[in-house]
C-alpha cells in the first residue's frame, strides 16, 4: 500500500512541475507593470525648467483636459526618437504636454529643444529624479496620460506610432 502510494505522489508532483515550467517558459520574464491604473496624480512641487519658479502639481492638471506627462532628458537617446510624435501631439488642442526634465542640465536640455522643437506647455525639472519615483516611473522616457487628476494610461519606453493612435483615440 505504502510503497505504491509514494511513487504515485512523486510522479504527480513532477508532472505538475513539468507543466508549470512548460507554461513558465512561454511567459516573458521581463517585468511589465499594469499600464491601465486609475491612480491619483501624485502631488509635487518642482522648479520650473525656464525660470526656477516653483510649480505645484495641482496647478498643472486643474483643467478638465487631457494631459500627457512626459519624462525626458537630453542625454536619453530613445527620447530623440519619440520627440517627433510628441511634436505631432502638440498640434492637438485637446491635450496638453507636460515635460518632466529628468536629471538634466539646463544647457543641454535647451539646445535639445532648440534643435528638435519644444512640444511642451509646461516643463518642470526633476534634478535628482526623486519626483519621478513618486509617479512610480522607471526611468526615461516614460509618459503618463492624465485626465481629471487620474493617471489613465502609462507608456514605458518611447512613444511610437501605435501609442500615438491610442492616445488620439482616448482623447477624442
Amino acid at each position: 500500500m505504502k510503497s505504491k502510494f509514494i511513487p504515485l505522489i512523486l510522479i504527480f508532483i513532477f508532472l505538475i512541475t513539468f507543466v508549470i515550467f512548460f507554461k513558465g517558459l512561454k511567459n516573458s520574464n521581463i517585468y511589465t507593470p499594469n499600464t491601465n491604473l486609475k491612480k491619483e496624480v501624485p502631488l509635487f512641487e518642482l522648479k520650473s525648467f525656464e525660470n526656477n519658479s516653483i510649480i505645484i502639481s495641482e496647478k498643472i492638471f486643474e483643467d478638465n483636459k487631457y494631459y500627457l506627462m512626459n519624462i525626458w532628458a537630453s542625454w536619453c537617446i530613445p527620447c530623440k526618437e519619440e520627440h517627433k510624435f510628441l511634436m505631432k501631439l502638440k498640434k492637438d488642442e485637446r491635450i496638453e504636454l507636460i515635460g518632466f526634465n529628468y536629471k538634466d542640465n539646463f544647457k543641454n536640455a535647451s539646445s535639445f529643444l532648440k534643435d528638435l522643437g519644444n512640444p511642451y506647455n509646461i516643463i518642470v525639472s526633476d534634478k535628482d529624479g526623486t519626483a519621478s519615483i513618486e509617479w512610480g516611473a522607471y526611468g526615461v522616457p516614460e509618459s503618463f496620460l492624465v485626465h481629471q487628476n487620474k493617471i489613465i494610461k502609462r507608456f514605458i519606453g518611447p512613444i511610437n506610432d501605435e501609442n500615438l493612435l491610442e492616445i488620439q483615440k482616448i482623447i477624442r
Binding site: I11, F14, F18, F21, F22, G24, L25, K26, N29, Y31
Partner: peptide
C-alpha cells in the same frame, strides 16, 4: 531558458529551454 530573472544572462531561446526541460524530465522519470 531565461525563465528566471537574474544577473547572469545567456542568450535566451525558448526552444532551448523546452529541449532541456523535456530531456530533464525524461531522465527524472
Amino acid at each position: 531558458s531565461g525563465i528566471l530573472n537574474s544577473v547572469h544572462t545567456f542568450a535566451n531561446d525558448p526552444e532551448r529551454g523546452l529541449f532541456i526541460l523535456i530531456f530533464l524530465f525524461t531522465l527524472i522519470f
